[in-house]
Design a protein around this nucleic acid. Structure first.
Lengths: 239, 239
DNA sequence: GAGTGGTCTAGACCACTCG
DNA sequence: GAGTGGTCTAGACCACTCT
């Protein structure tokens, strides 16, 4: 432990434990050893050690049982559910994402957009409509509405990166999002845009994203080719 | 605060605060007052008050800012993402769910089922195949594979309640699940089962559920009528 | 009965935000 | 500079599990 570091001690410890688990130093199913000894060995207080362990329990890497001990989970999978960026996901998967900006303009908010963003109906909002490609093939059609003035990026920057990065770059801290995922058949127009036949199944996602004060910063209506894309995520049960 | 109760003090406090927020006693955007005063007023120590507040921050009801204070979120929506039971969801929505058990038997595990459940390929596993109805209309076709002996419920009990309730009733603590949500066109057979035309869009979900030791307890391949059902959930951003 | 995690206390110092 | 949350300590007692 490095006491001169600005990184909190509990966080240093949780990262060391996580690394040990990921790299197999702590085998799945093995016991971690009790908190008191661990605290004494590291020269930390018990609450600090507990805080480190609790953060890994919250992440789903450890399980604690009263009277038994703290155990490394047999988990086959990791990766938590995150508020993800399609652009970043594709890039991380080596899919070479690209973006075509189809529209980038302000328009009066419809009732639905106004309700989602919490602005008056008819007030001006920014509409960004994009086609997302992977390996040069269309993957998804993305329509987003944002409050005007939230980001100052033009079409050029939108073609280089994802929307979430631009929102974060504007100093906004994302906090939560409400999503609805469904499916429907492609219209002729949608099919032409996504290189799918009319009637092909499409995955739809509507999402409203909120910042850390609870204000809506983005409302998206997205359509994905079901033949090329599915949502994958991990849920934790609330205790 | 009731010190004679077996309910932890931090939990009593977090429930009181949550109730005050839900019922509007604490307005969105308002500050909670500092921890020290709150602790003194309630006769608690500061770490105990912090634990209560932190649990609500984790739930997404409050936001804390160093140097500023603790604020009630302007949140428009609540309901966290949970490992949900379709049966319970429909029942809570007043949709009068019902179940037809189509199959309930053991069979040798296919490679895919074996990999998901972590059992040898070809070993016997329980297959439960059900049709879920709402208001008497088909909603979804549910296929689940489980380790044999995990639950001892026959078809009769499966028609009365959801699978998760039976698993929990068997003394198993659910911990996490890995889900994949996609879409595809209905085959003729699927269409007939769900009262949809062939080629109609269907929502698909595959899910492996794990207990608190990390062992897989259930693998499900489910198909929902996209015209009747969509997934709705809220995500929190990891700090 | 021994060992574990769960809860709780009463302090302390620091980093940050704001006026 | 005043006020806030963030971190940390060194104890204490309790509830539970297992042998």
């Amino acid at each position: 432990m490095d006491r001169s570091s600005p990184v909190p001690l509990y966080y240093q410890l949780s990262q060391q434990l996580e690394a040990a688990i990921e790299q197999g130093g702590l085998a799945p199913g093995s016991l971690l050893g009790n908190e008191i000894d661990l605290a004494a060995r590291l020269g930390l207080s018990r609450p600090t050690v507990r805080q480190a362990i609790q953060s890994l329990v919250d992440k789903g890497l450890l399980v604690r049982r009263r009277g038994v001990g703290t155990q490394v989970l047999h988990s086959q999978v990791r990766r938590p559910l995150e508020l993800s960026s399609l652009y970043d996901d594709l890039e991380a998967a080596g899919q070479h994402p690209a973006t075509q900006v189809l529209r980038h303009e302000t328009e009066p908010a419809t009732a639905r957009v106004a309700a989602a963003l919490g602005v008056p109906e008819g007030s001006e909002v920014l509409l960004v409509e994009r086609l997302r490609l992977a390996h040069g093939e269309p993957m998804a059609h993305l329509r987003n509405h944002l409050p005007v003035g939230l980001i100052d990026a033009g079409p050029a920057r939108l073609e280089e990166t994802g929307l979430y990065r631009l929102i974060r770059a504007a100093g906004i801290t994302l906090h939560s999002a409400r999503q609805t995922v469904g499916a429907r058949a492609a219209t002729a127009e949608e099919g032409a845009r996504l290189a799918e036949p009319e009637g092909a199944p499409l995955l739809t996602m509507e999402r409203t994203t909120y910042d850390d004060t609870g204000r809506a910063v983005e409302f998206g209506s997205h359509v994905y080719r079901a033949s090329r894309y599915s949502f994958e995520f991990q849920l934790l049960v609330r205790p």
